[in-house]
């Protein structure tokens, strides 16, 4: 029983992870990981944006670089 529950929980977590990734909800986590990795590698050139700043910047950049959607 515990095994089944565990498998269900893992399945649900994987699905949530997949869904979040497809919608792009993990974009800030990735960005932060990228900047932190660069800093760890001794490249302090990047200011880390806050979450709010990041999402504003993201949609504002989409204004200038539109992406097509297919038919």
């Amino acid at each position: 029983m515990a095994l089944v529950l565990d498998a269900v929980r893992r399945g649900a977590r994987d699905l949530a992870w997949f869904w979040r990734g497809v919608l792009g909800g993990d974009a800030y986590d990735k960005y932060r990981a990228h900047v932190e990795a660069q800093r760890a590698a001794g490249d302090p050139g990047h200011e880390l944006m806050t979450e709010r700043e990041f999402w504003r910047d993201r949609t504002d950049r989409q204004d200038a670089n539109p992406q097509g959607r297919c038919c």
Binding site: R20, L23, G24, G25, A27, E51, R56
Partner: peptide
């Protein structure tokens, strides 16, 4: 900001 799954 960023709560994409939630808002969807």
């Amino acid at each position: 900001p960023g709560k994409v799954s939630e808002v969807s």
